[in-house]
Every structure is written in C-alpha cells, then in structure tokens.
Amino acid sequence: MRGESANTSGLISDVAHSKSFDKMLGAENLGVFLLPAPGGMAAKIPAAAGIGYAVNMKSPNVDLTVEFAKTLAAPEVLQVFFNDAGAVTANTKMDTSAVTSPAAKTIFSGLATDVVPMAHTNATAQELKAIHRQSQ
C-alpha cells in the first residue's frame, strides 16, 4: 500500500487478489511470479489446495449435500465469485474473455497447463514435520 515492497505474497483466490491489487497499485504495476522449474522446464504457477467439501456418510442428507457441493463448484457460480469479488478460481471452465487484469490473464492462461503443487501440499507427514521444524 505504501509502495515500499518489491514483492508480496498474496492469494489468487480470496482476500488479496488481482482485482484489489490492480485497484491499489495500478494494473500496470502488478505482476505474477511464476515458480522457476528445474532443468530448464517452463516456469509454473505454484498452487495449493483450495476449498474442500465433505459430508459424513452417516448424514441423512448425503445426496443433497453432494448436490450442494457440486453447485458451489459449478463454473457459473464461480464466475459470479470472480466477476463480483475478483477471486481467481482454479476452474478452467470459467469464461475469462472479459478479464482485463494482466496479472489475472497470466494466472488464467497457466491454470490449465502450467500449475505445480507447492511443496507442502505434495509432502509426506514426515516431510511436513521437518518443514514445520525448520521454519519455526
């Protein structure tokens, strides 16, 4: 906000996203950092898990709950989430033709082909313990 940082960690889907940063910094001043890949492979968009839905199989309304989760994840619903809130979702079936933010365009263009899981989402329980110990 003060213009004193070169980089900032931000979510592409929720509170801090391209729409809010475009407004605050100016779209021409906002970029996307792609994760360097080993061995000369193309850079990737680092991604972690998003919202997860679950239902207890003993629930009397399993079918209704599953239908509700499918509704929440439908491209049409996520389109509203993006259009109104600016949240970038990982659903590649959304209509992105009206996207004007250069940063959001970069993210959307790579979602279908250039996503790589972040280390903590692809780690074993033992590796996660080591990461947590070393990052304290």
Rank of each mutant, 00 (worst) to 15 (best):
N91I: 12
N91D: 07
A49W: 07
A130H: 02
N122M: 00
K58R: 12
P102N: 14
A54C: 11
L35W: 09
K70M: 01
M41A: 15
P46T: 10
A37T: 14
V80F: 09
K58W: 06
N61A: 10
A73G: 02
F108A: 09
G39C: 01
S97T: 15
T124H: 01
A98V: 01
H120G: 00
T92Y: 04
A49M: 09
P102E: 03
M57E: 00
V77G: 06
M57V: 12
D114K: 09
V62Y: 03
T121Q: 05
S59L: 05
T113Y: 01
G39P: 08
F81Y: 08
S97H: 04
G86K: 00
G26D: 08
E28V: 04
S59N: 10
T124C: 00
P36C: 07
Q79P: 02
T106K: 10
Y53D: 15
L72K: 04
F81P: 03
L78T: 01
V88C: 11
A87Q: 11
N122R: 00
S59E: 07
D22M: 10
A104S: 15
A90K: 03
T89I: 04
N91Y: 13
K105H: 04
V80G: 06
A98L: 10
A85T: 05
G110D: 15
G110V: 07
P60L: 06
Y53C: 12
A125N: 06
N29Q: 11
I107N: 15
P60E: 07
T113V: 12
T124L: 00
G50V: 11
A49P: 08
P117G: 01
L30M: 06
Q126D: 09
E28R: 05
V32N: 12
T100F: 08
G86L: 03
T124Y: 01
T89W: 02
V32H: 13
F82C: 03
A98C: 05
V80M: 11
A69N: 03
S97K: 06
A112R: 13
P75I: 08
D84W: 02
P46I: 13
E76T: 06
F33Y: 04
S59Q: 04
K23Y: 02
T89Q: 07
S59H: 06
D84G: 02
K93G: 06
N122Q: 09
N122K: 03
K44D: 11
L25Q: 10
F82G: 03
A125D: 04
M94Y: 08
P60G: 10
A43N: 12
